[in-house]
Every structure is written in C-alpha cells, then in structure tokens.
Write a protein that binds this DNA or RNA. Structure first.
Length: 647
DNA sequence: CTGGGGACGGGGCCC
DNA sequence: GGGGCCCCGTCCCCA
C-alpha cells in the first residue's frame, strides 16, 4: 500500500490517462454513452456517471440513484457548471473573462459545493496569486441543518471581490443561506453579484451556451430567503415552492453524519427535515452547535475525513493524483501540442506560472465555436453503436430515431421539471394547515380542500359531494349501474377500476399472499378468449390473451402451456410468430398450471371441442359466462357458476 | 369469523 | 392549474 513504483516487468503507457480522458471528453461532447443529465437552472448537461462519481463526492452520491440530477442554481450557475464539467473532463479550468476573480470565486464556491477538492485547490491557488483570496478561518465549513449537525459539507465560498477592493468581503445577505455559527465559510460573491446567465461570460461576449436546451420559459422558484414561516401563512395562501430539492443539499459524509442520519431522514415536518441550507429558519431555530461540535478542521483535515469514510476519486487527495498525472505528462507531452492536464493544487510543488495559460485554456480551451458545436450536439449518440432508436432520453429511457425527436421529447420544460420532482421526491408544497408536504401544487390544493371541507362536485341523484370531478364520475356509475371494468378471468364486472384491480389481486394471490393456484380460471380465461374470436378482432383477442398472463406465476411451467397457447393462437387465427409473441407475453406460469394442464390430456388438440375437455374426475370451477358465451369451451351446457365434476 | 365486493378518501403522476 | 388516471388504503356490508 502506498507503493507507486511499478514492478519492473510492468510496461506503462505514459499517455494512457490523458488519452483516456480525451476519449471520454469526446464522448461527452457527442453525448455518446452519456448516462446522466444534470439540470442546472435552465440548462441541461450530459455526462457519464462514472466520471462524475470519480470527480465529485456530491455528484457521486446523486448518480447512484438518479439519471437526472438537479443542482442548486444558487450554488452553481449553468455557466459555472459548464466550466466545472469541462474541468472534470479535461483537467483544465477555462475562463472567458480575463481576470475574472469574481467568477473564479463562484467556481470555487461551486467546486466546494460539489466537493471537487482538486478544483477547489486550483481556484484557491489562483485567487491567492491574484491576491483576492482571503483564507479566513480554514476552508471548510460544516454547517447545521435542522437539529444539530446534519451535514459537514465543505462549503467554501471565496473571500474575494470582483471590485477593485482587494480583500474585502462582499456583503452578506441578511438571509445568508449558510450557517456561520458552527464553522467557517466565506461569503459568496454569487449571492450578491448575479452572474451572466452563461456563467463567467459577460453579456457582450458570445460564449457557448451552457447546453443545448433552455428550460427557462418557466423560471424556477424564487430564493428561499423570501420564505415565510409556515405558521405565518394564512390558510389558502400557499407559499411558494422555495425549498430546493433535498438532493441539492450536498451529501453527507457518513463519518461526519454519524448518528444524525436518522434525524435527517425522520425529522417531523415541523423540523423541516428536508430543510435546505438556504432555508433560514433551521439555522436560527436551533442553538448553535447543539450537537457536539466538530473539531476545527481545515480543508485538508476534512478531505482526509472524506477519504477515510468514503473513498473517492483521484481528486480526493489534494494533489497526489494531480502530481501523478503531471509527472506522467511531463514525461511524454509533446511540447508542440499541450495536452489536458489536471490543475495544479495549493501545495508547495506548484508548477510554474506558465500553467495559468493552460488552466485558463487560452490556447487550448474550447473556442466559442467548438463549444457551441459541442453543446449543440450534446443530445446525439454515435449512431453506429446503438440500435434503431439511436437517440435515447436518459431520464426516461425512451429511444428516438432522430435527434430532432429526442430534442422535442426532452425539451418540454414543464414536463421535464415536473418529472424531475418525481425523481428527487421533493415536496416543496406544504399544507399550511397540517404541514404535510406535496410534490405538486395541485396535489396540495386538492389536499387543502379536504381540510376545508370543500367538495364542489355534487351528485345530482343523491346529493353526495366530492372533492374531485373524477370521483363524482365514478360515483355516478352507481346510479347508472354502469360497470365498465370487467375481469378477464372470471368475467366479474365493476364500476370502479380500483375494485377490479383489487379483485384481480384476489385471483393472483392465495390466502397467504403468495401466488394462488388458480389455473382452472386461467384455462377458462384462455378458452374464453378463444371463443371471443367470434366477436373480436384477432389483434384484440391476442391483446386480451396476453393480458391473461399476469395471474400465472411460474416460468418453469411456461413450457407446459405451449400447447394451450398454441391451440389458442391457432383458434384466434394467429400466425406462428404472433402465437410466439403471445407466449412471450405470458411470462409467469404457476407450477400448478403445469400439473393442471396435464389433467387436460391429450393436451389441446387442434379440435376445439376436445382441446379443453378436462380429464374425468377433474374438479372444474365453472364461472359465469359473459354474454358472448353460451357454453363452456369444452362444450356442453351447464348451469352458470356451479362447480362440477367432469364425468 | 372470514373472504369478497362496494364505495370512498387520499396521494402521486402525467397530460 | 385543472383534469384524468393510477395506486394504496380504509370502512362497511354481506354471504
């Protein structure tokens, strides 16, 4: 452990890491094999989970669970994230504004938020060089959320000034989002100094857009500092969804979180369990350092904690990986073509100042044209590598034959934002009466109706009132007698679909909750479908047949059902291919099905009258027939709904 | 007592 | 924001 000298028999390709990184970045720019989308305010970025996870502890914690990430735009703007993503994939930090200490500070804050120590160190170094960095009290600020310490997030915000004032702290907003009581932090210039929407670029400069999609038609929620406490809101005065998704909160190192994880997950609503660091109240409502305070730690100590509790990528050790790469590249970099490199870090062995030009990408950085092309193509996949639907929407997995169709699918901002929330389980809409939180405003207002007893939908027949129109429609079927939901197994009819679903579970499950041995029903259902050919189109019959598969639960018995399915398919007039498709759609058959089908011997000859004739002695449950059925599939008449023993 | 059906409330989600 | 639909769950009644 710790030995870096390779054994003598190993052969090392010095440029391997660099070439790998170049390839990955190329793939990213083409969207090839990208498996995650990062949403930053109004911008989408595509990337590779592995790369993000290897670079950022925060992103690592997110990509495990989601293919669609939403970053707190108050912590990282689209333009800043573009720079950070470029850095992750190239090791270089581009700047499009000369002397952009202010932007550099924003990068520093965002890099800290995202937990990218290598970039943090680079920014600190560059800010120090320019004299704009003020290392106040260390670098990393564990801050409090809700009850006690819930996160020891290394939030670094640069102490810098974009104005000529060299070391002044920018003014901190009264509702500064970050707690300053228990740790160290710097004020963020981004709080008071809005950035160009594209990040570092001043408006007059035409730098590349952060990505190819603009979701800004509906602007995201306002700043949380405008929040009113719940108890100060009047009923019917729903507050704005202001708490960003919990995922926006930086991840919690397991070691630092310790026993607070439960409190994080299970805090009562009043405790603002999903409280975001930007929410003002959690910080003020709890005493400072209610939990044993973390020892004062500088950035290096906390990075050590990260490493100790959650091994991360090469950035974790502040410098080792970068040094390794630098050594590697010094060994083989052709001087005429400088290659991407990891940034130097705040250590004693900084590379010479000529690194600045490379870090800023002044010579190799993406030109606006390159970047534009890159981001305009970010939705495509290399067509030779994927099937027919070459363009895949990462969040939903849908494939599209063209990038236009994919863009049309993915660029619906309202739907996408709405869908995002389903992934992050954000509940930004609290009920002002009971505090319960909801994912959608409409759901919350609907819930409020129940509190207020508002039932605007009344039944003309009985006067019963409902909170929803759909419920009234459902209710009206009681009066009309309409039962549109029919069980395909037994023919039972229901006025409410949910009752049919409940009924179907009865078919599928036995008393112990396990799969029910109900094959006679399924046999009947198959035969019934066969008879339905009299009144149904073939496709419809096949569709119904496929729907009968859900109550069969043993794949091993599937083969035993082949004769039945084959018979059924034949009598539906299906082709062999279609019959095979039907079989595939009946994936789960119970073992009892196999035994039962053996009782129907000889199995399913092409003669319908004989095909389903049970063996003598088989106890067959006779079920009500639909109007289409005048006789059981195996022929003969019998009273409806009676069990009979086959003679 | 139990299983099943009828009716309904509530929340999630998508259009 | 509203509508529609799905799902989960509950209560009540009845055989």
């Amino acid at each position: 452990v710790g030995q870096t000298t390779p054994p003598p028999f190993q052969v090392r390709v010095p440029s391997h890491s660099r070439q790998l990184l170049l390839q990955l970045n190329t793939q990213r720019t083409k969207g090839f094999l990208c498996d995650v989308i990062i949403v930053v305010q109004n911008a989408l970025f595509r990337a590779h989970k592995n790369i993000l996870a290897a670079s950022s502890a925060y992103l690592k914690s997110l990509v495990v669970h989601d293919n669609l990430l939403n970053l707190d735009h108050e912590m990282v703007s689209p333009g800043i994230f573009r720079l950070i993503l470029d850095f992750i994939y190239t090791g270089r930090l581009a700047e499009c504004e000369p002397g952009g200490e202010q932007s550099l500070g924003a990068v520093l804050a965002a890099a800290s938020y995202l937990q990218i120590p290598g970039l943090v160190a680079l920014c600190k170094k560059k800010l120090k060089r320019s004299g704009k960095y003020c290392h106040l009290r260390g670098g990393y600020a564990p801050y409090k959320l809700g009850r006690g310490l819930r996160a020891a997030t290394p939030v670094i915000q640069a102490c810098y000034s974009g104005t000529p004032r060299p070391v002044d702290l920018p003014p901190v907003e009264p509702a500064a989002p970050l707690n300053t009581q228990c740790g160290e932090l710097y004020a963020s210039a981004a709080q008071g100094t809005p950035l160009h929407p594209h990040g570092l670029c001043p408006p007059e400069r035409h730098c590349s857009p952060p990505c190819g999609l603009d979701l800004s038609k509906k602007s995201p929620t306002g700043p949380s500092a405008q929040l009113l406490p719940t108890d100060r809101l009047l009923p019917g005065e729903p507050r704005e969804p202001s708490l960003p998704p919990r995922h926006d909160s930086p991840p919690v190192s397991a070691g630092l979180l310790g026993g607070h994880a439960a409190a994080y997950k299970d805090s009562p609503p009043g405790g603002e369990p999903g409280g975001h660091p930007h929410a003002p109240d959690p910080f003020r409502s709890t005493p400072p350092c209610a939990e044993p305070p973390l020892p004062r730690a500088d950035g290096r100590e906390l990075m050590y904690r990260w490493m100790k509790h959650e091994p991360l990528g090469p950035y974790l050790d502040e410098g080792e990986a970068e040094k390794e790469l630098e050594r590697e590249e010094k060994a083989d970099s052709p001087p005429a073509a400088p290659q991407p490199r990891y940034p130097s870090v705040e250590s004693n062995d900084l590379e010479p100042d000529n690194s600045t030009s490379e870090e800023t990408g002044s010579s190799e950085g993406p030109s606006p044209g390159d970047a534009l092309d890159r981001y305009c193509n970010h939705l495509g996949y290399e067509p030779e590598s994927l099937g027919d639907n070459l363009y895949v929407c990462i969040p939903c997995g849908k494939g599209f034959p063209s990038s236009e169709q994919l863009n049309a699918h993915a660029a619906d901002p309202a739907t996408l934002r709405q869908h995002e929330k389903t992934h992050w389980l954000t509940r930004p809409y609290p009920c002002t009466i009971c505090g319960k939180k909801f994912t959608q405003r409409g759901t919350m207002t609907r819930h409020m109706r129940s509190h207020l007893g508002l039932k605007p939908f009344a039944c003309d027949a009985c006067g019963m009132r409902f909170t929803r129109q759909y419920r009234l429609t459902e209710h009206m079927r009681i009066h009309s007698g309409e039962k549109p939901y029919e069980c395909q197994v037994c023919g039972g009819k229901f006025a409410q679909q949910r009752n049919l679903i409940s009924h179907m579970k009865m078919h599928a499950a036995g008393p112990d909750g396990k799969a029910k041995l109900d094959f006679p029903d399924s046999v009947y259902a198959m035969a019934r479908l066969t008879a339905d050919q009299l009144g149904l189109k073939q496709e419809k019959a096949a569709e119904l047949l496929s729907h009968t598969s859900h109550f069969l639960s043993d794949p091993k018995a599937m083969e035993s059902l082949y004769p039945l399915a084959k018979f059924t398919a034949e009598h539906l007039g299906l082709s062999q291919d279609k019959a095979a498709e039907v079989l595939v759609q009946a994936p789960h058959l119970h073992a009892e099905a196999a035994r039962t089908i053996e009782r129907y011997s000889p199995p399913y000859s092409p003669t319908p009258a004989r095909a389903l004739t049970p063996l003598p002695g088989a106890n067959v449950k006779l079920l009500p027939f639909s109007p289409l059925h005048t006789r059981p599939p195996w022929g003969g008449d019998h009273p409806r709904g009676l069990a009979a023993t086959v003679p």
